[in-house]
Structure formats: C-alpha cells, structure tokens
C-alpha cells in the first residue's frame, strides 16, 4: 500500500471515531465532560509506545507472529460489528429508509463491499473530503443548538467520572488502527495521531456540551444524545432539518466500516496473500453476523478490555524488544571496535 499523508490519517481516524461518538448511548451529566478530556489525555499517553516504533514494525510483527495478526483481525471485526450493532440500536426511525433497519444495514454493507474493494488508499483520499462535509453539518448543528443553549445547565462536576471515561474508551476501537496505519505514514505521524485524538475529544465535548445546554432534561430521558440533539436543534423555525444528518450518519458509518474492513484486508493480505480477494466480503459478513447476535454493550465491553492490550502492551513489548536489540547491537559494535 502506498504511503498515506498525515492529514489523511487524521481524517480517517477522526471520522471512524466520530461515528462512535454520535452513537453514545447515554449521557451521565456534567461529569462526563472532564471524564472525556481525561480519557483523551490518557489515550495520548497510551499511544506513545505505538508511535515510537520503527516504520514497518507492524507488518513484520504479524508476519512473524501470525497469532497476533489474528488477534488484531478479530478485534477489527468486532469493531466493525459494533458499528452495525450501533446502527441497529441507536438510529432513530426517521434517519433510516422506510423499509427498516435490516435493509439499511444490508445496503450499507453492500456499499462497504464496494468501498473496501477500492482499497485503503481510496479511503485515505476520501476521508478529508468527507471531513469537510462533516464540519459543514456540524456548523448547522451548532447554529441550531446555540439558539436553545442555556449555559446555566453547565457546571464543573466529577460525578460519574469513571463511567464517563469507560464509555469514551469503549468507543475508541479505531485506536488500534493507529499502529497499522502509522506504518504507512510518511512523516509527522505523532502530529497526525495527536490531532485525531484531540479532535475526537473536542467533537465529543461539543456534542456533550450542546446536549446538556440545549437538550436539557430531555436528553437524559431519551438517550442517544446526538440524535436527540439533532431532533431538538433546528436552525430554522418552519422546518425540521434533522433529515440532513442522514447524510452525516451514512458517511460516518461507511467510513467506519470501510476502515475496519480495509484494515482486516490489509492484515490478512500481509499474513496470507491468497486472502486478498475474499477477505473483504467475508469480513463484512462476519461483522453482520456478530452484530445480529450480540448487542453493542457486549461488543463495547470486549473493545474496552482489549484496547489496552492491543494499543499499549503489545506495542510496548515490541518497543522494549527493539530497544534491547539496539543496545545489543551497540554493545557488539563496541566490542568489535575495542
């Protein structure tokens, strides 16, 4: 796969993360705001070992330790399945076609089948364009929400801090993609990844902020703060504009699912070149099956417990190994010189 640019990496990861943010199932209150900020800081720290690794480490690791590659494949399948499960549970009926959720899921899966066949390079190019459209829709949302916002509803609280952090982590499955994609990036990958982490946190904070200030008590009752916020925040009085978010919804879900499928395909191709052709459709089918049988809270729990291992422990052990090897080489060189 050709190198991707750092702004493309930021955009891909951000959009995949944004899908998870819009599917946050519930709001715990003002305490979720500092919890989100703290979770973001913690994620920046946890990503340090991944970013310190040499380029190409992931590819070499999965070729040498195929079990590790399988682990990552299963993880990304679960992330993709979680996306479909969130679609099932979170999406309000107005945002889906009249034929129902199953039709919507199948249509999205068919679209993702095409988009993943275009390759991760196409995803990388499409991501900044989709991001531009997404930012436009956010502006519309903010314009509508600002009219209803009451700043007296916001206060600094630490109640429900830990549940808030847990939710944020369980919606951050795309973090594992950092290691895979950072392998492809040309330069300034630290900047790209940090921008994504901070951007996602800012987006989450924005949604929470306006949910609390503009949504008021209705947000806590209805759940799914983003969708409730879009229903309540209308920029124009005579019309309901939340149908426009269908486009946001579709774009984000496709980006999210395509990223997971693309990465599974990329990993499978590196481990078993013969898997190149069929890995994408098979992974989509797996995702649909998993989503059908498991609810999103189960999948999110799996993501929550797997994430520290995949993004921190494994890369850290690789980094320690690399460091030890470099010390050994220096030691050997010193012996030769002396």
């Amino acid at each position: 796969m050709s190198k991707i640019h750092n702004h493309q990496l930021t955009a891909i990861l951000f959009l995949s993360g944004a899908w998870s943010v819009i599917c946050i199932p519930s709001l715990y209150g003002n305490g979720q705001l500092p919890a989100t900020a703290a979770a973001c800081l913690l994620q920046i720290l946890l990503c340090l070992p991944m970013l310190a690794l040499q380029q190409g480490t992931f590819g070499r690791t999965i070729k040498n330790y195929k079990i590790m590659g399988m682990l990552y494949i299963i993880f990304f399948l679960i992330c993709g399945a979680n996306g479909f499960a969130q679609l099932w549970e979170a999406a309000p009926p107005q945002l889906l076609p009249s034929s129902g959720k199953l039709t919507a899921a199948v249509l999205i899966a068919l679209t993702c089948f095409y988009t993943s066949s275009a390759g991760l390079r196409a995803t990388a190019r499409a991501a900044p364009i989709v991001m531009g459209l997404f930012i436009l829709s956010l502006i519309v949302l903010i314009l509508g929400a600002w009219k209803r916002a009451d700043l007296n509803r916001i206060s600094f609280q630490t109640e429900n801090f830990l549940p808030g952090m847990k939710i944020y982590f369980s919606l951050s499955g795309e973090l594992a993609a950092v290691w895979v994609l950072a392998d492809q990036i040309q330069n300034h990958k630290n900047t790209a990844v940090n921008l994504y982490l901070i951007g996602k946190a800012c987006f989450c904070l924005l949604i929470l902020f306006f949910s609390i200030t503009a949504g008021g008590r209705l947000i806590y009752l209805n759940g799914y703060p983003f969708f409730t916020l879009t229903a309540l925040s209308q920029p124009l009085q005579g019309q309901r504009a939340d149908a426009l978010y269908i486009l946001v919804f579709v774009m984000l879900h496709i980006m999210h699912t395509t990223l997971q499928t693309g990465i599974v395909e990329h990993i499978a191709e590196q481990m078993y070149p013969i898997a190149e052709k069929w890995s994408a459709p098979v992974s989509l089918i797996f995702m649909l099956i998993l989503a059908y049988f498991f609810k999103s809270d189960i999948l999110e729990t799996i993501i929550f417990y797997s994430l520290p291992v995949l993004i921190f422990l494994i890369p850290l052990s690789m980094r320690i190994r690399q460091f030890a090897r470099s010390l050994h080489k220096k030691g050997t060189l010193y012996e030769k010189i002396s």
Partner: peptide, 8 residues
C-alpha cells in the same frame, strides 16, 4: 421524537 413533530 418518533413521529417527526417539530420541536418549535
């Protein structure tokens, strides 16, 4: 929330 009545 379900039938599309405008919040305004």
């Amino acid at each position: 929330f379900e039938k599309g009545l405008s919040p305004a």
